[in-house]
Design a protein around this nucleic acid. Structure first.
Lengths: 227, 227
DNA sequence: ACCTGAACACCGTTCAAGT
DNA sequence: ACCTGAACACCGTTCAAGT
């Protein structure tokens, strides 16, 4: 926990290339992530950042996917604990909103988190918190267990949807294309879209997230697990 | 619609390199996708497949993301229309299950669909179908509109979660790591996880999908849109 | 054990030049 | 207009060799 891999001697020379370590690699990755996005968090780029060759990193990190998962685990630590006030529903929504907003700051990471779920301590704490809140709300255990999965998946997916906006400029165009397609739809072939085009595209992102979380919680609460 | 870009003359020589076309490129992409996964659906590989240079493809396709979106749009056509029998809930669940299962056959594509939403005719038809079923169920229009988004997102995210399994062998290990972490959790620090570990990991994939869709529908039905 | 240079086998995309 | 070769600027990962 408190181990400091840095050599403590303070030479006054050039930064004096610090020894490699998993922590150092993850820290460098976080820096590049914040500065230039996940697409630049590559083995080669990190090696360059740490003044070594890409092969050296493989001593500490199995591959690129594992590196990305480690970065997410690190960021998960910045999401605070559950608030103390409010009903269990409100607190549940707040925890999930905080998680989603963290991911929204790094949508490309959310995208990768969907595939490579983190399994670090911070993620476990989050699951524990969610289970506790659902239990407090009297949601049966089996429903709560599957519900946690549903809630985390939605939060992650919602954030992942915004990836590419930061990564590639094309994704935004793709989204605009859907909006245009919805608006231009013929009323004879797609009457329901025509009638709902406004609503389909309406709503601030915060309002939609809040509504979605409430709908999920309501659904989880009311839907029994089979068997 | 019925335009055939192929030159009709039937030379008996070698396959006689057919003229390039967007359709031909998408078709080749589908072939590579099915045979080797999305990771191999690259401009260079497709160019090789079509016996030309990568630069030639840029006449028909803006970039790799757009190519992937076009492939998904194509696959969306293979999902049949809504069934005629059953309650609106059952039919809604069936349509979404069919959509999810199509995506599950190509999880890496689902992953990319989360970011670059398709906007082709097949996608619009799907939205129309979902809106019609929710309307039939008496779900208010505003709720239905946001609900469709939620339903499609869940289906896509659920499939996307399985990406990497086909793509990279590491993803499976990552998922196993989460399972192990959940099982090994201490009962003192994470009592709810300890009590629910079995339930968190239980359930066949079909049962979980079915439950999730029902929970979503129940939640959408009962949660009013603000304002 | 840790670190490295060099190599292998790839990418997306652009551009000037050809037809 | 369509097509192309060649180039630019990158990737992940492995391996034999060094310390």
């Amino acid at each position: 926990m408190t181990a400091r891999p840095d050599t403590p001697r303070s030479r006054r020379e050039r930064p004096a290339k610090p020894a490699l370590s998993r922590e150092g690699i993850v820290a460098a990755a976080l820096g590049v992530l914040r500065a230039e996005g996940l697409r630049k968090v590559t083995m080669r780029r990190l090696a360059q950042e740490l003044d070594t060759g890409p092969a050296s990193l493989y001593v500490y990190v199995r591959n690129t996917d594992e590196l990305h998962a480690a970065v997410l685990d690190e960021l998960l630590g910045t999401v605070g604990p559950a608030p103390a006030e409010g009903s269990w529903r409100e607190r549940l929504e707040q925890v999930l909103t905080a998680y989603t907003e963290m991911l929204l700051a790094h949508p490309s990471l959310a995208r990768s988190a969907l595939t490579a779920r983190p399994s670090g301590p911070h993620y476990l704490n989050l699951i524990e918190t969610l289970l506790a809140l659902l239990d407090e709300g009297g949601v049966p255990r089996a429903q709560a267990a599957w519900g946690v999965d549903l809630l985390l998946q939605h939060a992650t997916a919602m954030a992942a949807e915004h990836a590419g906006q930061d990564d590639s400029p094309t994704a935004q165009q793709e989204w605009d294309a859907l909006g245009a397609a919805l608006r231009d739809t013929s009323g004879t072939t797609h009457p329901h879209i025509r009638a709902s085009a406004g609503e389909l595209l309406a709503g601030a992102h915060e309002a939609r997230l809040s509504w979605a979380l409430q709908a999920l919680i309501n659904g989880i609460e009311r839907t029994a697990v089979p068997g």
